[in-house]
Design a protein around this nucleic acid. Structure first.
Length: 260
DNA sequence: ATGGTTGAAAGTCAA
């Protein structure tokens, strides 16, 4: 079973890039974030001729938005509000192969890494704690957590660890919150487990002159597995070349293949 | 220290 997570940064603008990924990678399920569209305007019909007939989404006008595009049936769809927020940041499903997939778009947190002066940063930290509380009362097995978590936790997840210590996405307090959440599964960061020492990025800013040459990336997009799935994961990788496609998202897809 | 780009939307806000 192949799973892909991708912050698409507008599902409508990039539906042709989605089709290309479906054709080239043939995932069983594609998990999207930042769809930036109301649910009823998401162009799911485009993907049916490619063999993808199962969809679920929590859309929102202009902002946020998460979705599943799947060639296998999905059941028990849930869209969970955390902290009472109406922002569309979570959707989960149970696949016909018996896996529970949680698809998240965590808050970005604004520019200033201080919860007292920046309410977006406070919301980001509180959101992660609320997700942790939610998982603490669940019996987690055969579960996968994917998405744009908007945190690059390890030194090797950013282009310059020291330069980014005060930059939102890599501050110690955010990393602490994410590590605490990981313990709640416990969840295993499978890509980092497979490649413990190398620089790994899934996002490159639009603002760089040449993203490939400057390579000032961060690993914001994650695939976490519960321990019972760890030995079933045969590969996990980042599709870096997608950042070089025409009119790309600033994030690239992350892939995991499981043998169930 | 600053500004750089993109998307949704129709002025800015968010990333």
């Amino acid at each position: 079973m192949k799973i892909i997570t991708w912050n698409i940064n507008s599902i409508r603008l990039r539906s042709s890039l989605i089709s290309k990924i479906l054709e080239e990678e043939e995932p069983d399920i594609l998990c999207l974030q930042e769809c930036k569209s109301p649910s009823e305007d998401m162009p799911f019909g485009v993907f049916e001729p490619l063999g993808y007939k199962f969809f679920a989404c929590w859309g929102q006008k202009s902002y946020n938005g998460v979705a599943f595009i799947s060639r296998i049936p999905l059941e028990n769809i849930e869209k969970r509000k955390f902290l009472g927020s109406e922002q569309a940041r979570h959707i989960s499903a149970i696949t016909s192969t018996g896996l529970t997939i949680h698809n998240f778009y965590f808050p970005a947190g604004g520019d200033i890494p201080d919860r007292n002066s920046n309410e977006k940063f406070a919301f980001k930290l509180d959101y992660i704690k609320a997700v942790e509380e939610y998982f603490s009362v669940l019996d987690l097995s055969k579960s996968i957590l994917v998405g744009d978590l908007n945190i690059a936790p390890e030194e090797q997840d950013v282009w310059d660890h020291k330069k980014l210590l005060k930059v939102v996405s890599h501050t110690p307090i955010e990393v602490d919150h994410l590590r605490s959440l990981a313990k709640s599964g416990p969840w295993i960061d499978v890509l980092r487990k497979k490649y413990p020492d190398e620089k790994l990025f899934s996002w490159w800013s639009y603002r760089a002159k040449d993203w490939l040459v400057s390579n000032k990336g961060r690993r914001l997009d994650h695939i976490w597995l519960t321990e019972d799935l760890l030995d079933k994961c045969k590969s996990c990788y980042i599709l870096k070349e997608v950042r070089g496609w025409s009119s790309p998202s600033d994030h690239v897809p992350v892939v995991a293949e499981l043998v169930l």
